[in-house]
């Protein structure tokens, strides 16, 4: 696209796609924006009216909002921590030559293919259930009191479930990066007298920097909107102990039939997501430059 003419032509050709994508985003966004300034409750039909920032005021002053905000950050942060650390560890292990490497790798990737609702239900009923669950069985076998995970540590349990789902993704990306590590560099470091640990710290980790950034950015996008796992396990409870922003918006609009309040929550969620994105790009974005 060297000449001005071909640039104009290129813009012209691109415009349908751009307009379509823009419309795709703008229409729902502006409708949400519009509803968020309306009194619009499905239980009170015919009473729609312009209420200004009242919906926002109610959403932001609701004590549930701060609990949900905190839970969202804990959920994202906790899952990121577990998946990045665990992913690096697994990638190091899977990078070693071993017998049955192919099958082991497929097994490690497998959780990623299980639907979130299914895996959350499996965890809830088969592992964490205080009566029939595997963990309860183990606890009883060891002579301890079974622990009711979802009742007493609901957020931790959900973090665990979600981390289990996302660990394969992190492992896969990090393993690919690990395999592109130059073996001559490793040998040079070996001759330079670097121990296994030093080689990991000074060569492997910096080499993985970019892959870790990719994992963090992509996972954050998905983790901010975790919903199914909460719905099928704790329903946001007990109280608001495992309610995140997404779940709060759902509860507002579909359990309390308050479309206006839910829309205001949705807009706030968009703003929060952008704030998180700006922070992330500030912190780790420079890793992506060449």
């Amino acid at each position: 696209m060297a000449t001005a003419h071909s640039r104009t032509a290129a813009r012209f050709m691109l415009s349908p796609a751009v307009i379509l994508l823009l419309g795709w985003m703008i229409v729902p966004l502006s409708m949400t924006l519009y509803f968020s300034f309306q009194r619009y409750n499905l239980l009170m039909p015919g009473q729609e009216a312009w209420v200004g920032f009242l919906n926002y005021k109610y959403f932001l002053t609701d004590p549930a909002f701060f609990a949900a905000l905190w839970n969202t950050l804990m959920l994202v942060g906790g899952v990121l921590l577990i998946t990045v650390v665990g992913g690096i560890a697994l990638a190091v292990l899977l990078d070693q030559p071993m017998w049955g490497q192919g099958i082991v790798r497929i097994l490690v990737i497998a959780p990623f293919f299980v639907m979130p609702t299914v895996s959350a239900l499996v965890w809830k009923n088969m592992f964490m259930n205080p009566v029939n669950g595997l963990f309860a069985y183990i606890a009883k076998f060891l002579g301890m009191q079974p622990f009711d995970f979802l009742a007493h540590a609901p957020l931790m349990s959900i973090i665990l479930i979600v981390a289990w789902q996302w660990l394969p993704f992190a492992t896969l990306i990090l393993l690919t990066a690990m395999q592109s590590l130059d073996s001559e560099q490793q040998e040079a470091a070996e001759m330079d007298g670097a121990s296994v640990v030093s080689r990991f710290i000074y060569l492997t980790l910096p080499h993985l920097g970019r892959a870790i950034t990719v994992v963090v950015l992509i996972q954050t996008i998905f983790l901010l909107s975790i919903f199914a796992e909460i719905l099928v396990t704790t329903n946001g409870g007990p109280g608001y102990a495992s309610t995140n922003i997404t779940y709060l918006v759902y509860a507002q609009s579909l359990l309390q039939f308050d479309v206006g309040g839910g829309s205001a929550g949705g807009i706030i969620a968009v703003i929060l997501a952008n704030i998180v994105a700006i922070f992330l790009m500030r912190m780790v974005g420079k890793n992506l430059e060449t």
């Binding site: 001559e184 560099q185 040998e187 040079a188 470091a189 001759m191 330079d192 670097a194 000074y202 060569l203």
Partner: peptide, 16 residues
């Protein structure tokens, strides 16, 4: 390798 007191220059340079 590190104990042999030898230094090696690789074909790909192998710089960090």
């Amino acid at each position: 390798p590190a104990q042999r007191g030898l230094a090696m220059v690789f074909q790909s340079y192998a710089l960090y």
